[in-house]
Design a protein around this nucleic acid. Structure first.
Lengths: 206, 206
DNA sequence: ACAATTCATATTGTATACAAATTTATTATA
DNA sequence: TATAATAAATTTGTATACAATATGAATTGT
């Protein structure tokens, strides 16, 4: 999810980002019915770009037949099952293919995770995962993980402000393992890390 | 890829299926430029459903900025890397959650694989994988694998008529392993099976 | 002959119109 | 009062119009 700051040039992208964000921050509540005309007037574009945005959001499973998806435990589990698989393997690849620059980015994320403001910490933690996914060097995998971000973000919304204990410690260990080019353990630790994330989230959702 | 025989009711789906099939069977050659108006008159609908179809095909990586994707070895490898991950894990899940009916379907596929006509064999082999993926019981994973089918099919187009030796034997072994509820080995064998498929395909692509 | 510039054409992005389908409200009937 | 039937309204799917962009051809100057 390239949370892009600069304003989107074309109406479709603007519509996509607007609607997605309205869903993610609860302005459009989960379970709500999506009506093209309403959104068109809210976003300030015609129905055409709204429809394209909806198609994209459907693809990301944030909208399922005109309804904003309601977070169910089962779906969070399913999403994480796939995410653990893909990001686990990304960590494996990252340990094999990382560049010096990747390494610097990762350690910078860990550092901010310990010293930054709440907001900086959250951004850095997201970025930590992004860097590893990118380092996998597989555009198809990168794309898939990217598509899963919205829905995972929605499900975790309630949790996201809390800061799970040990999260940064786990990041640091993963960083060191990647740095040591220990692909097997990097994969295993990433999987455990995400599993802990899931367990923590489930604790709040119920 | 639900190769649906009954005619699609709505124009978007019709457009999607038509364009996808034209690409897959080479009527629209790889590397060709996609022009909405042209396709609209070919398919016999307006540009609106054509655009929706294109968006979907872009999502499946069959079209990349108005060009039909050209099969490169690297992309086939990347796709298979993800597919091996996902279908491998599907096999793992299938071994844990399969129903009696799944088992019958799988053995039926193996049987047809040994006794059917060329066309029946191809269909049965595809179905073998479908049954396992469905048995994973994870709609998010099912959806992702489904989206990868078009591009893998495109890359393998040249190979698809050949019948790789041992393919059915491998299917049969996987079937037996799943039946024995041996999840670990089912996963390992599925991964090896798909890796062999990839290697075989690469042999032809170069 | 080749690069740069201008013009013409083709193509896309977006808005809008309208009919078909769906949903909601209203009335009639048991 | 509850249920079925009908009508009104909303909403979607598709086509089309038109302006903004992009592409490519023709023209000019070097």
């Amino acid at each position: 999810m390239e949370r892009n700051n600069d304003k989107p040039q074309n109406a479709s992208l603007k519509a996509y980002e607007s609607i997605r964000d309205m869903i993610l921050n609860g302005e459009i509540p989960t379970g709500a019915r999506i009506v093209e005309d309403k959104l068109a007037s809210i976003v300030g574009v015609s129905r055409t770009p709204i429809r394209e945005a909806i198609q994209r959001l459907e693809q990301e499973h944030l909208i399922v037949n005109k309804l904003v998806v309601k977070p169910e435990e089962k779906e969070l589990r399913n999403s994480f099952q796939v995410r653990i698989l893909l990001e686990g393997y990304s960590a494996h690849c990252a340990a094999m293919y990382f560049t010096e620059h990747d390494l610097e980015s990762l350690s910078e994320c860990v550092r901010i995770g310990r010293t930054g403001s709440i907001d900086e910490i959250m951004k850095a933690n997201e970025r930590f995962h992004d860097v590893i996914v990118q380092a996998s060097n597989n555009p198809i995998m990168i794309d898939m993980i990217d598509h899963m971000k919205s829905i995972i973000y929605l499900f975790r919304r309630t949790v996201i402000s809390h800061n799970r204990p040990f999260l940064i410690d786990e990041h640091e260990k993963i960083y060191q393992t990647i740095r040591a080019r220990d692909a097997e353990n990097a994969e295993r630790m990433m999987k455990e890390h995400l599993q802990a994330d899931l367990d923590f989230s489930l604790h709040f959702i119920k």
